[in-house]
Amino acid sequence: MTLDSIDRRLIAATATGLPLVVDPYAEIGRRLDLPESEVIDRLSALQARGIVRRIAIAPNHYALGMTANGMSVWDVDDDVVDDLGAIVGALPFVSHCYRRPRHRPDWCYNLFAMLHGGSRDEVEAKRREVAALLGDACRANEILYSTRILKKTGMRLTGVG
């Protein structure tokens, strides 16, 4: 995927979000000395390429009461993991869902899904829901709760200037 220097400036200019003015794309254009139509066309092209996933609001799920979460991990048959992963990922309480390599014999899990809920009990209920959904295709599962944030930094985009 290649981005030209204008794309990179556009990404940098929207790194903290859209300005809250009636014409936010024109406002970004004014900052970058670009016409509004080019800002819109470029964002649209970036969206078509999957670099912009979506333009939307991300509610703070903690603020809205979804204060519990756990990283659930599942040992799912390789033949069906992609079909089932797609189903698990689409659940409204799953925020990340990936297939990752096993590290046998210590780690047999190949499907990772971050589960969210209003409480630890609710997260456990969702884990049971996922287990029921996976059925016999899943041999084992665990859930790893975080006990401490040790480091959290924003993603830095280098090469912007």
Binding site: M1, L3, I11, T14, T16, G17, L18, L20, L43, L46, Q47, R49, G50, I51, V52, R53, R54, I55, A56, I57, A58, P59, N60, A63, L64, M155, L157, G159
Partner: peptide
Amino acid sequence: EIGAITRFGPFYDAEAMGG
């Protein structure tokens, strides 16, 4: 302002950007 939103705007795929 009250922290009900963590982000408003485009969501970028960090990997698609080359990371």
